[in-house]
Write a protein that binds this DNA or RNA. Sequence first.
DNA 1: GATGAGCGG
Length: 84
Amino acid sequence: MASQGFSVYVGNAPYQTSEDEIGSFFSNVGHVTNVRIVCDRETGRPRGFAFVEFADEAGAQRAVNELNGADFNGRQLRVNLASR
DNA sequence: GATGAGCGG
């Protein structure tokens, strides 16, 4: 089961991080097609996590295997397969 | 001018 797409959940990221920074960081393990930082719709504040979309599933899983727990801007990055 | 949950429209 688990028909998860090529989206990867990125958590524990610094609030001052931009999509370009994340895209460049995840582009090292695969081809990033889109990067989306999740913000609260009601308050407009960043929730502290983002989503990275890959062109291939291999890149997504590679990101989880390589960038999960990696040090990003002084914070340990959390990478996992997205549920959506 | 400020936050820490963790899955977005």
